[in-house]
């Protein structure tokens, strides 16, 4: 499954080969975390550091909340035609103290999710462009033992 040629839908937010992780940023002075990753000023008002460095985030977290889109989002989302409903989950990463939103692995719907459920980072194709190139995105996928079904 691993393919180093995978083109991410956005650069630098996640690894494109296993183990899949999100990439955040961490302040070199106070240690606070940021996602999405960026450079520049630390968001902590009591820290004047200008150094945030990229850091892999925990692969697993717990569902804070979730929903399921029943209508195609407007552009710049590239929606499949016909549109297939899909789920989104906001997931809490305990060590980093972050809640991060993501698409849920295709085929896993709201009815399959619950607040507190353990999920982990995986990748799937977000869309295929006009040149036939697949653009990949991170997803939250239920950890095998946690699936309701």
């Amino acid at each position: 499954m691993t393919s180093p040629e995978r083109v991410p839908a956005i650069d630098g937010w996640f690894t494109t080969s296993e183990p899949y992780t999100l990439i955040g940023a961490r302040c070199t002075a106070c240690g606070t975390y940021v996602f999405p990753p960026r450079s520049g000023a630390c968001p902590n008002p009591d820290c004047d550091s200008m150094e945030l460095e990229p850091t892999p985030l925990s692969r697993r977290g717990r569902v804070w909340s979730y929903t399921e889109n029943h209508y195609a989002p407007p552009p710049p989302y590239v929606a499949a035609d016909p549109f297939e409903p899909y789920a989104l989950a906001a997931v809490q990463l305990e060590a980093e103290g972050l809640v991060i939103l993501g698409q849920v692995a295709r085929g896993v719907m709201a009815a399959d999710l619950a607040i507190g459920m353990e999920v982990e980072v995986d990748l799937q194709v977000l869309h295929r462009d006009a040149e036939g190139v697949d653009h990949w995105i991170w997803t939250w996928a239920p950890v095998a033992s946690e699936t309701k079904a």
Binding site: A9, I10, P36, W64, S65, Y66, T67, E68, N69, A72, P73, P74, P75, P76, Y77, V78, A79, Y86, L88, A90, L101, G102, Q103, A114, I115, L126, I137
Partner: peptide
């Protein structure tokens, strides 16, 4: 704003729904 639409399709109602789901489950 571009990121959340392009990468996730996280519309405004999707955010409202995350909040509503918390109210139901919690």
């Amino acid at each position: 704003d571009w990121q959340r639409f392009h990468l996730l399709g996280a519309t405004n109602p999707a955010f409202f729904a995350l909040n509503a789901r918390r109210r139901i489950d919690v």
